[in-house]
C-alpha cells in the first residue's frame, strides 16, 4: 500500500501532467497519419511549390475570374474553354495541372464554363479516345465531324524569385493567367497571384 503523496508534490505532479498534456497536441507526430490536404498541418517548404500554394493560387484565380463578370458576356453559355500553354519558368519541374485542374473543376461547378478535352495544344487531345470515338461516329454516319470550338483559351506562366538576407531565405512564386477570346485574340481577363514564403531553413511551419 503506497502512502498518498504530500499535497505540494501531488500539486506539482498534476501541474506537470497538465503541461505535458497541453503540449502533446503540438508535438510532431512520429507515426504516419492522415491530415487535411492543404490544411494547417501541411508541411511548408521554401524549395518547392507546396499543395497549399497551388490551392491558394487556384482559389484566387477562380474568385477573380468569376467576380470579373467576363463569363457572363459569352453569347452561348456555358463558354467552351481550352487549356493552352502554361509556361513553367520556375527552377522545379511541376505539373501545371496542379493549378489548371482546380480552376477547371471550380469553373465547371459554377456552370459558366465547360472545358474541351478533345482539343489541345499542338493537336494533342487530353482525351484521345473521346476524339477518336467522335471521329469514328461521324465517319460511320457519313457526316463530317462537328467539334465545338473553344470560345476562350487559358494560358499562363509560373515564375519564381529567390532572395536571401543573412540566414533568412525568401521565395516568391508568381502565378499568371490570361483568358483569351479565340475569335479576336484579345485577353479579356488577366490575373496574377504572388505567394511569398520566408524562413531560415528550407522547411518552415505555418
Amino acid at each position: 500500500m503506497n502512502s498518498p503523496l504530500p499535497l505540494p508534490r501531488a500539486l506539482s505532479a498534476a501541474v506537470a501532467a497538465g503541461v505535458l498534456l497541453a503540449l502533446s497536441g503540438c508535438q510532431t507526430p512520429r507515426d504516419a497519419k492522415y491530415i487535411e490536404s492543404g490544411g494547417a498541418s501541411t508541411v511548408v517548404t521554401l524549395d518547392q511549390i507546396n499543395i497549399q500554394d497551388w490551392n491558394r493560387a487556384a482559389d484566387a484565380m477562380v474568385a477573380s475570374m468569376l467576380a470579373s463578370g467576363v463569363l457572363e458576356r459569352v453569347p452561348e453559355q456555358p463558354a467552351v474553354l481550352a487549356i493552352s500553354r502554361i509556361v513553367n519558368n520556375t527552377q522545379q519541374q511541376v505539373d501545371t495541372d496542379s493549378l489548371t485542374k482546380k480552376i477547371r473543376v471550380a469553373l465547371n461547378q459554377s456552370g459558366k464554363v465547360i472545358t474541351t478535352t478533345t482539343l489541345g495544344l499542338g493537336g494533342k487531345a487530353e482525351d484521345p479516345l473521346a476524339k477518336e470515338s467522335a471521329e469514328m461516329a461521324a465517319m460511320l454516319a457519313g457526316q463530317k465531324q462537328v467539334t465545338r470550338l473553344p470560345y476562350y483559351t487559358l494560358s499562363g506562366k509560373l515564375l519564381e524569385d529567390r532572395a536571401q538576407a543573412g540566414k533568412v531565405k525568401q521565395v516568391t512564386y508568381t502565378f499568371q493567367l490570361s483568358l483569351t477570346t479565340v475569335k479576336d485574340g484579345l485577353a479579356v481577363w488577366e490575373e496574377e497571384k504572388q505567394i511569398t514564403k520566408q524562413g531560415t531553413r528550407s522547411s518552415v511551419g505555418w
Partner: peptide, 9 residues
C-alpha cells in the same frame, strides 16, 4: 465543398 474551402493565412 469546392476549391475555395481551404484554410488561408
Amino acid at each position: 465543398g469546392g476549391v475555395s474551402e481551404l484554410w488561408l493565412p
